[in-house]
């Protein structure tokens, strides 16, 4: 069985809100796929429907062609990390995993193996209420790894993690995907996905907004960057640049913001215009801003 995830026309209607609206996409093995959308856009509901925790109003979700509920040994196929506090506060981390081992038919030593895998062995016998948020996320990953699954599904795994924890998580997921397995990870931050994901699926208000490779998506939603120039000869440079397909902004005295061409072209134009340059920098597009605009635009369509 391969680890391809297929979501077809998935819909969830609550009495007052259409949380997920006719959503269809596929997630390929061997890649990290980001599932992006603002808070409340239906990501968690979608993930929970894929895992048979929430019943869809319509549509289906399959993992390797099989619905989650029909998997004979689901933990062998899918590991899921959905919320960071899914353990009894008075139970130790090791016992939490041993309960799951018993339910899934694994020997108890499997609990120690996955604790070791996520680096939680020193805290194995500590009660869950004493775990930091980072440790809770790791315990969640340990639980997801019990069945050595082909697919990992994670809901906002970076929430509350310190930079070291985020780096660890990123490396863990990249290594997992590089073994030909599937990683499907939700987030509301495009910047985070830019560093982690190969593909992204973007939703807003339960509807598909965009999907494709991260670089394509970023190029399409953010547009080209701008080149910031500081020069005492703004007017001369502006005249020379009018020979190029550019838009110009004047953000301050002796400053020019050029869109449409790269920094090398602006430098060449400055040389031709005999304009003295004090600064020439390329400004990266503000991804989060572009992402918010995109999803907000989708919301307005409704």
């Amino acid at each position: 069985m391969d680890g391809q995830l297929v979501v077809s026309n998935l819909t969830k209607v609550y009495p007052k809100v259409r949380a997920v609206d006719n959503l269809s996409f596929t997630v390929q093995p061997g890649r990290v796929t980001g599932f992006l959308g603002p808070n409340g856009s239906g990501k968690t509901t979608t993930l929970r429907m894929m895992l048979n925790l929430v019943t869809p109003t319509a549509g289906t979700a399959t993992i390797g062609g099989v619905r989650y509920a029909d998997l004979p040994r689901p933990l062998d196929v899918v590991g899921a990390v959905l919320e960071a506090s899914s353990a009894h506060k008075g139970r130790t981390g090791r016992n939490h995993l041993r309960v799951l081992c018993a339910a899934a038919g694994y020997p108890d030593r499997r609990a120690d193996e996955v604790l070791d895998l996520v680096g939680l062995t020193p805290a194995a016998n500590r009660k869950f209420r004493g775990y930091s948020l980072g440790m809770r996320q790791r315990l969640g990953i340990a639980a997801a790894m019990i069945g050595d699954p082909k697919v990992l599904i994670l809901d906002e795994p970076a929430n509350g993690l310190d930079p070291e924890g985020i780096k660890w998580m990123r490396e863990f997921l990249r290594a997992f995907a590089s073994q030909g397995r599937t990683v499907f990870v939700s987030s509301h931050l495009l910047g985070e996905m830019q560093q982690l994901a190969d593909d992204v699926i973007i939703i807003a208000h339960g509807r598909m907004v965009a999907q494709g490779s991260v670089s394509d998506i970023i190029a399409s939603i953010a547009g080209p960057g701008a080149v910031r120039v500081r020069t005492p000869h703004v007017d001369q440079l502006a005249v020379e640049l009018s020979n190029y397909p550019v838009t110009l902004e004047y953000p301050g005295e002796n400053q020019l913001l050029v869109r449409g061409v790269d920094a090398a072209t602006v430098g060449r134009a400055a040389l031709a215009a005999r304009a003295e340059l004090h600064e020439l920098t390329t400004e990266a597009p503000d991804l989060e801003q572009a992402f918010l605009q995109l999803t907000r635009a989708q919301a307005a369509i409704r």
Binding site: V118, G119, A123, M135, R138, D148, A175, Q179
Partner: peptide, 19 residues
């Protein structure tokens, strides 16, 4: 006893006992 204890690398994953 803290999370900053050395973490096992992900590459140890394939050595896990088969299900």
């Amino acid at each position: 006893m803290s999370t900053s204890a050395p973490m096992s690398s992900v590459s140890s994953h394939p050595t896990l006992a088969p299900a």
